[in-house]
Each structure stands twice: as C-alpha cells, then as structure tokens.
C-alpha cells in the first residue's frame, strides 16, 4: 500500500494505517527534528507533535503532492514552533553561567552525537538557512521538494542553501581555529 493510500485511511481514522505510516517515516522525521533542534529530548517532543498533527490533519493532505512532501512540511513547521518557543523562553531571565549563544547549552547532544563541531556549526545557522541545509544536504531533497516543504519559492531555498553552506563553512573554520588555539594554549 502506498503512503497516499495509508494517509487516506488515516483521515478516516484507521489506526493501523497510521501505525504503518509512522513506522515507515519516523526515523526521517526524528532526523530532521534533531538536526533542526540540536538535542534529542526536544527532537523527540517535536517528532511526537509532528505525528499527532499528521493524525489530526490527515484529511488536509490533498494527495496533490507526495505524502513525504506534506510530512516534511508538517515536520519543519513543528520544528519552527519549537524554536520560537525556545526563543521566547530565553527572553526570561537566565540562570547564571548560561550562555544563550551556546547552542549546546540545552544539553544532550554533544555527549550523544559524533562530530559535535559540525553539529554546533549547524545550530549556529539562522533557522531558515539551517532548514534549507538540513532538507537538501542532509535529507537529500531536491530544491523543488524542499521549496514545497518550506512553503517558499525554489529560488529562495537555493539562496538560503548557498548562504547556509557558506556560513556553515565559516563557522566550522572558526570552531576549528578556536579548538586549535585552545590546544596551543594547553601545550
């Protein structure tokens, strides 16, 4: 059965169809959420919210585009919601020693993932750039599909992707130089 068939059944309230759709795509959703949000607990929350939205709004999936395109859209929007919420929270007084610019400050990712420098750099990108980079360079979406998922023109995605890559490269160089510098100091 295709994703589309399953989605139609989910809209009719078919729980088994929903389970199957989730099994097929939950890792993909989690991957996007983790790359967008940077820590596993937040990514799990966003993954859960994404699937609840899929269940509730399955009837709004028109079938005009691929199910995965719609799923990506729901996922990215959920991540944006979580990011907005996080920013709102950070306008509250911060505990001492908390560096709001440190994307790892919320904890949880550095200890779990490899290559923390790439992840830190990714998290330092503006959200819109990061979304384009995650969808195209990590999830291998075409510019066209990424544009549909983000709800912006293809040219906009391309421009965000290119600027995102360049910023990422600069962040990586900065991070690597920083850690070289630290090593020198300790030597």
């Amino acid at each position: 059965m295709t994703d589309r068939d399953l989605a139609v059944r989910v809209a009719e309230g078919d729980a088994d169809a929903f389970d199957e759709l989730m099994r097929r795509h939950e890792d993909r959703v989690f991957a996007i959420c983790l790359r967008m949000l940077g820590d596993r607990q937040a990514a799990l929350d966003a993954t859960q919210d994404t699937w609840l939205t899929v269940f509730r709004k399955a009837d709004r999936f028109s079938g005009a585009s691929a199910f995965t395109t719609w799923l990506h859209r729901v996922t990215v929007n959920t991540c944006y919601d979580h990011l907005r919420k996080r920013k709102r929270r950070r306008t509250d007084p911060l505990p001492e020693g908390f560096d709001p610019d440190d994307p790892g400050a919320e904890g949880g990712f550095a200890s779990v993932e490899l290559r923390p420098d790439v992840e830190s750099a990714l998290l330092r990108l503006p959200d819109d750039f990061r979304a384009a980079v995650v969808l195209v360079d990590l999830q291998d979406l075409s510019l066209h599909d990424a544009a549909e998922a983000l709800g912006v023109p293809t040219g906009t995605v391309k421009s965000r992707l290119f600027r995102g890559r360049r910023l990422l490269a600069k962040e990586l160089r900065n991070l690597r130089e920083g850690s070289e510098h630290q090593k020198d100091e300790h030597a």
């Binding site: 890792d27 989690f30 991957a31 983790l34 790359r35 990514a43 993932e113 490899l114 290559r115 790439v118 992840e119 750099a121 990714l122 980079v133 360079d137 990590l138 995102g164 890559r165 360049r166 990422l168 490269a169 990586l172």
Partner: peptide, 11 residues
C-alpha cells in the same frame, strides 16, 4: 560544508 555534512551520522 558538503563534506562536513556528509560525514554526519544519520540520526
């Protein structure tokens, strides 16, 4: 950027 990203493990 592309090299670094391709080295990230698939979560």
């Amino acid at each position: 950027a592309i090299d670094a990203l391709s080295g990230l493990p698939e979560p």
